[in-house]
Design a protein around this nucleic acid. Structure first.
Lengths: 277, 277
DNA sequence: ATCAAGACGGATCAGTTATTCCATTTTGTC
DNA sequence: GACAAAATGGAATAACTGATCCGTCTTGAT
């Protein structure tokens, strides 16, 4: 349309072209541009309709986007994304060595990054094998029935509950994150009733505050769902149901990836369950 | 349909299966088998009609071929070929293949959990391929040289900086988490000097506070390292270096796994670098 | 040579595709 | 603030998709 002279044949050229025009693109077209560059595989394999949906636009906008760049339709734009995947296949062996133990010629930084990525992927694997159907179901049941969900975690586990608090909030599920900025946690927790529930997360070495709070709640018949690392964890004793989430770690820091995925799954499952009430 | 118990979910398994049956396959089906193994890319991208033509058979034969192998149609066979191109990390693919695809007979809870686990593993893969050596190095250099590291993130990105704050603390690296509980963020940030540095994390839809703070810091020559989702992000403009971390998501919630691993790698790399001073 | 069982080709079908078109909204200019 | 131009959403459409079906052909055991 407005650029017939140089229509990009390969992905890099296309990428550059899009980045060049980023400021002059209309809103929806820019939205697609951003999506396309960060999810090129989706463009390569998806259909106009499916891509439009995940990118949050209309299919027609996708076609306009392609035409705006000089292609004669979505299909020709898509073929550039497909070409990219075919070519990349060549350098695939070199990529493989990146994550394997092969640290030759890699910078320290890269070794560290790979370490964390590997630890993360191990966590995910472990979770997927260790989580049992019944445990998952009863945890979801407990939480879905709760009036308020209390979130207990400290230190390295705190980010998990922070994200859960955010997600519960978005999903309009009442929750209370125990953060102790003012040191009044015991008072807040004293409001918890048996019709509420708590999620407690802690790994060895266990944060004493989390353990104590969980025990206190359990003593008052508030059901506790725990995520911890073994059956010997003091959390497991206070918990009505508990998940074993042995996280991989690298140089002393846990990956959190598996636990994070489990936590989000719990969150969304609870919302899903409530919707069916 | 001579369906065996297990139908291959990844390309290698499919390849082995086809090679096993090579002699027992009827003529036309063998013809397709040979074509498929030597032109896997064509199968991945083509349509049943186009593949049939270049392979010299009828489209219906292609579908019969797929069904003969135990798939329920050409489409499911094709998805195996597509998966092969999509997953650059073969080892991950093998490990996680159990997770993907069939949701038959799984509980809703399990489907949701698998969704998050898959999204997490995608994130990790993406990060491992998108992070470039130079970007990583210059980010580490900036941060290692900083007196105080300011951590900016809101909402869904907040858990990342929360964990970084914890890890930096453990590693005795001076840092300041911008949390705004008292609404005095601008004042705290006004202390930042060019000899400090900031890490800003935000994904679309970007948290305005993070964007503004990052821009303010950049304007005062405080170097900003950003983690965001595309070149279109307003964060990328304020940043001296920025990482692209397109996180997989499931039912609207980002996985955070890849970003978390990247953040931890940055944290530890900075500590490592400082130790060498 | 016969004949049943499987393999095959090709017409057909329901569903989906990319695309077009037009009414409406948004944007930019004077 | 008014107006033209551009952008956008969404319904409509024609082409094409994968899959099915059935008559014909091939194969191989008897």
């Amino acid at each position: 349309m407005d650029n017939d002279v140089s229509l990009p044949r390969d992905f890099d050229a296309l990428r550059t072209m899009i980045l060049d025009r980023r400021e002059v693109l209309p809103k929806r077209l820019a939205q697609i541009a951003a999506y396309a560059l960060s999810n090129p595989d989706e463009i390569a394999f998806g259909t106009a309709a499916s891509i439009a949906q995940t990118a949050g636009v209309q299919p027609s906008t996708l076609i306009r986007f392609a035409q705006h760049l000089g292609f004669d339709g979505f299909t020709s734009l898509q073929s550039v994304f497909r070409e990219r995947l075919r070519e990349r296949q060549v350098s695939y062996e070199e990529r493989l060595s990146a994550l394997r133990g092969d640290t030759h010629g890699l910078s320290t930084n890269r070794v560290i990054l790979n370490g964390f990525l590997t630890a993360a992927s191990h966590s995910i694997e472990t979770i997927s094998h260790n989580v049992e159907e019944e445990v998952l179901e009863s945890a979801v049941n407990i939480l879905a029935g709760a009036e308020t969900i209390y979130l207990l975690a400290r230190r390295r586990s705190y980010p998990i509950t922070a994200y859960m608090a955010y997600a519960f909030g978005k999903l309009k599920i009442r929750n209370q994150l125990i953060e102790s900025t003012a040191g009044i946690d015991p008072e807040i927790l004293s409001f918890a009733k048996p019709s509420d529930a708590a999620i407690a997360i802690s790994f060895s070495p266990y944060a004493s505050a989390t353990i104590e709070h969980a025990a206190a709640l359990a003593a008052r018949n508030v059901p506790v769902v725990a995520i911890t690392d073994s059956a010997f964890s003091p959390l497991a004793q206070s918990a009505k149901v508990w998940f074993e989430a042995a996280e991989g770690d690298f140089s002393g820091f846990r990956s959190l990836s598996g636990t994070m995925a489990l936590a989000m799954a719990l969150t969304v499952s609870v919302a899903e369950k409530r919707r069916s009430f």
